[in-house]
Design a protein around this nucleic acid. Structure first.
Lengths: 228, 228
DNA sequence: TGACTTAAATGTGTAGACAATAATCTCATG
DNA sequence: CATGAGATTATTGTCTACACATTTAAGTCA
């Protein structure tokens, strides 16, 4: 294991990030600098750096002389995110079909098989499938070997997706169908068919979006935090 | 005009960003905090925030306890950037075809006409075309109305593209052809044909990439900065 | 009631200090 | 002469304390 060298700012950033994603800090909430610094036992310097990071990944918004607030999740923004995901992950799948090594493709297949087994074991329960879904997409994104693409997706977008899933309780309600789609994508990648992999991935994300959107509209709208 | 309210960190970030993009600070160069702070007449606090921003837009890389360096441009990274541009701007064009108002479409057409006139006036000289190209793509990206997409492209990626253009002197050597492609894209958007606009935009960026890549390989490789 | 003034709270910027780490240098030793 | 352990220096990361600017809230008075 590589000894992870880090800094206070990064650590605190990760902690706050987790709190925001899981909803411990509710959306729209104002973030008080001295208070946050006290809570995490650090001084303002590193804290401001941490907040800069959070801002750059768009988990909070800052306005000069006023302060920072946790973002407000919205139907529209989730739609935006999924549009971008469809485009970028389609690209990732296309690239991965060409760039993945045999070993990586093998691991991807193993991952799928473990998901299949898990779904069978739990009678199609979606519990674990959510993280499994993340794993699958992570694998492909990394397989693209495009560093910037990896950063954009794994670094930022997935955080937001996780946040929506947490706060809207949007775990997959169609694990078998999702698995089947994953299966198809995996096969296309194994065969090195980039165009097909891209097309399948885009359709897969499109399906996921439609599913999620439908459920979000039914579901009670999110509380408004404590905005002014 | 809206009075632009800002902070020291942002201002200095923009100044350093400009220096990096234009090559005033050469790639690979180490950035010394106290020195930079002195140069820009600020203290280390805001400076570190500024550097955090620069890091998030990947103009510099920082390693804990060691410091910050300007990124090294490479053929591979430019390829990565263009792959992503093709994907995202294709999406932007598709969305813009549906989301742009009549007025915006009109402005886009006016912009194109002014480019055409300029190219005719200068006998196809590419001088102004470069910024014009940026304008055109900006227009479409903003026309997509997808805020996150706008941020990703206009906020970060275009900075990098400008940097490569500056430092490799990659102004367009095919302004007439580019104009023609812009024309096609504009028409598709005017007609609200999103799929066609997407396809045309992807082909356009693909052409630009092939052109640039070809010239980069011919051109003398970049000097190595002063890496360790 | 409403516009103005005042006061509190909060964000922003500065200066200086110290600790921890990395880079460099020194010098004795094989 | 080369090498490597130890000492020295430089730089980064962090903290504290204070000054300043701006926003927000409260208070005042016509």
């Amino acid at each position: 294991m590589q000894e992870e060298i880090t800094t206070l700012a990064k650590q605190v950033c990760d902690r706050i990030k987790k709190d925001i994603i899981t909803g411990t800090i509710v959306q729209g909430q104002k973030l008080n600098e001295p208070e946050l610094a006290r809570i995490h036992g650090i001084s303002r310097g590193p804290l401001r750096e941490a907040m800069g990071r959070l801002e750059s990944m768009r988990l909070i918004t800052r306005t000069p002389n006023i302060g920072a607030r946790v973002v407000n999740l919205s139907y529209e923004e989730l739609l935006e995110i999924y549009q971008i995901r469809e485009s970028l992950e389609g690209l990732a799948a296309k690239l991965a079909a060409k760039a993945m090594t045999m070993e990586e493709k093998g691991n991807l297949r193993l991952l799928l098989n473990s998901h299949r087994k898990h779904i069978l074991d739990t009678q199609g329960q979606s519990y674990f499938q959510q993280e499994g879904d993340v794993d699958f997409h992570y694998c492909i994104v990394h397989g693209s070997k495009n560093k910037r693409l990896i950063d954009m997706l794994a670094g930022d977008l997935y955080q937001l997706v996780r946040m929506y899933r947490y706060q809207f309780s949007l775990s997959s309600n169609r694990p078998q169908q999702a698995l089947k789609e994953h299966d198809q994508i995996c096969s296309a990648i194994e065969e090195g068919d980039g165009d097909l992999a891209e097309w399948l991935m885009k359709r897969h994300i499109n399906n996921a979006r439609n599913n999620i959107m439908q459920r979000m509209q039914i579901q009670s709208p999110i509380q408004d935090g404590n905005n002014p």
